[in-house]
Nucleic acid binder design. Structure first.
Length: 483
RNA sequence: GCCCCCGUAGCUCAACAGGCUAGAGCGGCGGCCUUUUAAGCCGAGGGUUGUGAGUUCGAGUCUCACCGGGGGCACCA
């Protein structure tokens, strides 16, 4: 019985024919390629029908083809955009022409040609010579509707990038955002550093970690949930201004704003406090947005709105969380009175956090700093200089999501030790998202850490805000999927 | 982890209330065409309807389980 004829079998057959004809379907190199955007930039001003003798070498993927017997139009796509090619049998010769027209959508070719504008006014390259650079053995996604199935888009991002121009452009923006951030911090005297991803003890954030195992050492290691503690040890060491831009891993649920691995920027600046950190963040984000071109209705020009946590919750819910500080029952009663949903069995600080994330965070569209948090929620932040029970911490929100978190860093080793003890007590009460006691870190603080501002900025979320995407999966190339 | 929705050709979608051999466009294949642009025209192909059970004379359609995805909740950033 004959094998069923698969659509892609034709491509295999063509591959064999090419080899038989002495064509290498996978040559090694094609030097001297220019981006097609360069051709557009140089000649978009031509009149319809106008010819030039300007020659270009371009390369890319065949995105569309319109044959006309002894001539054909081929759309060539590279990273910078698309360019129409015009192939003519009388220029290329019968054999070369037939072979070019016989290629498939998705095949990669290199082309030499001269720029002209077609009668219909589209800038084109008249092909004078061409070479196959790689045969495509699978059909690309449909050219008109594009690739829409989100599962395929995320699992096979390469197809998404081929089929959807705006997706490719978004990830180019993401790359430029990261490059711009590095330049910004480098210019201000920050040193980019790398600290361990595999850690004997995790810390610096409240989250459950991923656990892995080192065979030779026969011990468990954790994937970092933050870079905080190591970076502060570098401040103790005298590096003064450091930043690290890399992946953190948190063993929590997946949602439109949570991916288990995500890109985080943390920077630490000696002799500065959280107000300095806020000013640097708004300057950085405004600078990056200007550099990459931000879309949408956000006003990112500094200064951004600043409000205290207490005011923010009061404004949205009418509840003064500091009226009965630490009194969970009173707070539960107040929320019930106003008909607000809240888990009444939670301890007071978690209730405050819930009020913030449920009733305040989603409403914060324009960039907003929320200042001064209860100490229980912030084991690494320094006590507020004038508000007892609070710490000098802010979180920054935009487009209804949190994008950054910062403190005046706690540098009193005895106080830090007491905070770890408090965390240990919470662990014993069943809280799985507490800080393990990190003696090496406290010991480092005992050597003396200068007053320091620390800021953590979620890069994925920043890109979401700058590009108006509502799902983190749209800004992560290969988001976490089952299996 | 829980609830709701979804899964048909390489891609985008059809298929009345359970009823003939599961259709169409794009792509691919053969042919015609020297300025088209979702090119056009002619022709012939392409399917284990996510997987597995079940109900029924008959299942893409109904039931159950499983796999995968989306949205929401919970948890978090």
């Amino acid at each position: 019985m004959a094998e069923p004829h698969r659509p892609d079998d034709d491509r295999r057959t063509k591959l064999d024919r090419l080899r038989e004809a002495g064509v290498d379907p996978f040559p090694h190199t094609f030097p001297g390629v220019r981006p097609v955007a360069e051709v557009h930039a140089a000649h978009d001003g031509l009149e319809a029908g106008e010819e030039t003798d300007a020659s270009y070498r371009v390369a890319g993927r065949i995105a569309a083809r319109r044959g006309h017997g002894k001539a054909a139009f081929i759309d060539l796509a590279d990273r910078s955009g698309r360019l129409q090619l015009h192939a003519r049998a009388d220029i290329l010769g019968e054999e070369s022409f037939e072979r070019l027209v016989g290629l498939d959508l998705g095949d990669l070719i290199g082309v030499d040609g001269t720029a002209f504008k077609s009668r219909r006014g589209e800038l084109s390259l008249r092909v004078t010579d061409w070479v196959l650079l790689a045969k495509s053995l699978r059909a690309p996604p449909e050219k008109f509707h594009g690739l829409e199935d989100v599962e395929t888009r995320y699992r096979h991002r390469e197809l998404d990038l081929i089929a959807n121009d705006e997706v490719r452009e978004l990830f180019i923006v993401r790359s430029r955002v990261i490059a711009a951030i590095r330049r910004f911090l480098d210019e201000r005297g920050f040193l980019e550093v790398e600290t361990p991803v595999l850690q004997p003890l995790y810390g610096g954030a409240l989250s459950r970690p991923f656990v892995t195992h080192h065979n030779a050492l026969d011990r468990d290691l954790y994937l970092r949930i933050a870079t905080e503690l190591y970076l502060k040890r570098l401040i103790v060491g005298g590096l003064e201004r450091v930043y690290e831009l890399g992946k953190d891993f948190r063993n929590e649920g997946i949602s439109h704003k949570h991916n288990p691995e995500f890109t985080m920027l943390e920077w630490y600046e000696a002799y500065a406090d959280y107000e300095d950190g806020a000013r640097l963040l708004e300057e950085l984000v405004a600078h990056v947005a200007a550099e990459v071109g931000q879309s949408g209705g956000l006003d990112l020009s500094p200064p951004w709105r600043r409000i205290t946590l207490r005011e923010a919750i009061l404004e949205k819910t009418g509840i003064d969380v500091l009226a009965g500080r630490g009194d969970a029952r009173a707070l539960a009663a107040a929320t019930r009175e106003r008909g607000l949903e809240l888990d009444e069995d939670e301890p007071w600080p978690k209730m405050v956090d819930s009020l913030l994330s449920k009733h305040v965070e989603p409403t914060l569209e324009q960039p907003t700093f929320v200042f001064d948090y209860p100490v229980e929620l912030s084991p690494f932040a320094k006590a507020h200089r004038s508000e007892p029970g609070l710490v000098e911490r802010w979180e920054c929100f935009a487009s209804g999501i949190e994008i950054a978190n910062a403190f005046t860093e706690l540098n009193d080793p005895d106080e830090q030790r007491a905070r770890f003890e408090a965390q240990r007590r919470q662990t014993e009460e069943g809280d799985e998202e507490t800080q393990p006691y990190d003696e090496d870190f406290v010991r480092a603080l005992e050597h003396g850490m200068p007053p320091t501002s620390g800021v953590g900025l979620g890069i994925d979320r920043l890109v979401m805000v700058l590009t108006e995407r509502t799902s983190i999966r749209e800004v992560v190339l290969f988001p976490a999927m089952r299996t």
